[in-house]
């Protein structure tokens, strides 16, 4: 992926580079007794394990009907401030410019591939972007926000309903942006990600954002993931390259 090595300051260029990824061939599993894979999903369970990349990395999230997210007055004020700073060339205002974690959902929309590793114990996302990983345990609901410390990637619970993997997250810190354009969120953010395996090579994704601090209503946004069978994650070290 040519977009993977992009200095933060060049991110606006991304807008003109977004292109659909090629549809890959089927991925052949390599399990055998000589290399047993334990805690694998039970037969009949939809299995999301594999190498994935977003088809169209996004600089700016829109709602599922193509509209601007429903920022409230506080949200509009904060977003305008960030956009003005970026426009004036102050890219340091962007948390990922100092190699902080992208947060959710921004990490999903970043122009880097990732692995989904699904086991009976949990489901793990391993992103090439600054070797960031997120481990989500199977549970009905995430812990109560007041019981856990706020983090960049939040505290989450995962479940599978049919062909859809559903991840509910709470307890985010307010140090991340929802997207590269600077959409804000506060610590009351809750995120629901829904990954639907529409065919063996494709995940149709939807994210529901709820944050009363900066948005007047909850809103949804979409993404599409494709399998990347020949791909290997590169070692990406943001502090070394300052490229995110």
């Amino acid at each position: 992926m040519m977009m993977r090595k992009m200095p933060v300051a060049c991110l606006p260029v991304l807008a003109t580079m977004l292109a659909a990824a090629p549809v890959p061939a089927a991925e052949a599993p390599a399990a055998s007794d000589t290399a047993p894979a334990f805690e694998q999903p039970a037969a009949g369970t939809t299995d999301f394990t594999g190498k994935w990349a977003i088809v169209k990395p996004a600089l700016h999230l829109l709602t599922t009907d193509g509209k601007e997210p429903p920022l409230n007055e506080a949200g509009k004020t904060e977003y305008a401030k960030r956009k003005a700073a970026l426009k004036s060339g102050d890219h340091k205002i962007d948390p990922v410019s100092t190699c902080l974690m992208h947060g959710i959902p921004r990490l999903l929309y970043a122009p880097y591939p990732f692995l989904i590793l699904q086991t009976t114990r949990n489901v793990t996302f391993v992103h090439e972007a600054n070797h960031t990983f997120r481990i989500v345990y199977w549970d009905k609901a995430p812990p109560a926000a007041e019981d856990v410390d706020p983090t960049y990637l939040g505290s989450a619970a995962a479940r599978i309903e049919g062909k859809t993997l559903i991840i509910d997250s709470v307890s985010f810190n307010d140090q991340t942006w929802l997207d590269y354009s600077g959409l804000p969120h506060g610590e009351k953010l809750t995120v629901q990600e829904r990954y639907t395996l529409t065919d063996p090579q494709t995940i149709s994704g939807e994210v529901r954002i709820t944050d009363p601090q900066f948005y007047s209503t909850a809103w949804n946004t979409r993404f599409t993931l494709k399998r990347q069978p020949g791909m290997s994650l590169k070692e990406n070290v943001c502090m070394d390259t300052h490229q995110m």
Binding site: T119, T124, F133
Partner: peptide, 30 residues
């Protein structure tokens, strides 16, 4: 934490979110 997948063992390290991939697919180093 060790996580198994077909042909791959991943070791996730809490420290500085280090990730190791152990290639178990029998292929030589590319």
């Amino acid at each position: 934490e060790f996580v198994y997948a077909p042909g791959l063992i991943t070791i996730l390290h809490e420290v500085a979110h280090n990730v190791r991939f152990i290639h178990m697919d029998g292929k030589p180093v590319p």
